[in-house]
Design a protein around this nucleic acid. Structure first.
Lengths: 166, 166
DNA sequence: TGTTGATTGTTCTGTAACATAACAATCAAG
DNA sequence: CTTGATTGTTATGTTACAGAACAATCAACA
């Protein structure tokens, strides 16, 4: 019995030879986590480029979107919804406040907490922001092959995320 | 005409009141990049916990898997396939070599480059690694609802990644 | 009322991932 | 043999993220 290339694993190194030790070892294409990470990196790349002119990062976008939709929430609430530690949220909010887009107001019933709101300029900013985002999102939908494909993707991602513990 | 809660945006702050400024502003659930990131974080979390005992991080896993499948490739080649800068690859490979799992050999035709290989111990390690990974991956497939759902997900992620720059 | 334990925002600190620039050794091509 | 590109490496900086600790404030209760 003559050993073939795959068994020796020495010929044409790095070309298309596959070693014997590859038994049961997955290809990168089969790994959900890997594909997920690459796709997320690509999407974020497009997002960041889309917002380079507005100087807005993904985390800042999500904070503004949340405040715009339901103003008056406390810092911990917003941070919690986005999975951001409240310690790390401080600097983020500082930036938005310094840029005059959002502001902290003393919460009425609780002197510890701050309720978050958009400034008038922040409202205008959020409108432009949404338009830029819509173009970005449309680009992704095009790549996916249509709105149905996007819905399918979002539903699958929800299956991974839903029922976190149990 | 009486203004309702949504129009004033002041009543029951932070509960279910939705401000007027929310026109056109997306919910987090509609944002592909956001869902993608949350899902990727969740999957990596499960991955990291699965490999906490073996002390193996995702990047190290992928490097070992790549070397196992096609040994003899140069550092830059492996790094390139994984999207890792060759500068950052050095420390990663140092770690694998220090643990006796992989090794750099002088490439035959090129005195600059190193060809990467698994040690005998690295081969055994890669086998166990694959078993642990299989369990992790199966957990994800279960969440997704079956192998077909996984295939659909991977296909959709490929659509995002393929044809990078037209 | 006064005390105790939890919560909120904050600061400080550390770690890991990632990018960029520069360098010596080596290659490849004219 | 010279010039320009490539390989691995070091050094450095930036960013995201986690944890501990703290003062101010709240909520509950003896």
């Amino acid at each position: 019995m003559t050993k073939n290339i795959a068994e020796t694993g020495v010929a044409r190194p790095g070309q298309d030879a596959v070693s014997v030790v590859a038994q049961g070892i997955p290809t990168m294409n089969e790994i959900i986590g890997y594909k997920l990470r690459r796709a997320q990196l690509f999407v974020f790349q497009d997002f960041i480029e889309s917002f380079s002119k507005m100087k807005l990062r993904p985390a800042e976008f999500s904070v503004l979107a949340l405040i715009a939709r339901t103003p008056g929430q406390k810092q911990t609430e917003i941070a919690g919804q986005l999975g951001i530690k409240r310690a790390n949220f401080v600097a983020l909010m500082d930036g938005l406040e310094r840029r005059g887009l959002a502001e902290r107001r003393k919460a009425v019933g609780d002197k510890r907490s701050h309720s978050l709101h958009l400034t008038p300029e922040g409202v205008r900013f959020a409108q432009k922001m949404s338009a830029v985002w819509a173009a970005h999102e449309q680009r992704l939908v095009d790549r996916l092959g249509g709105p149905e494909a996007r819905d399918t993707l979002l539903a699958l991602l929800d299956r991974i995320l839903d029922l976190k513990e149990t």
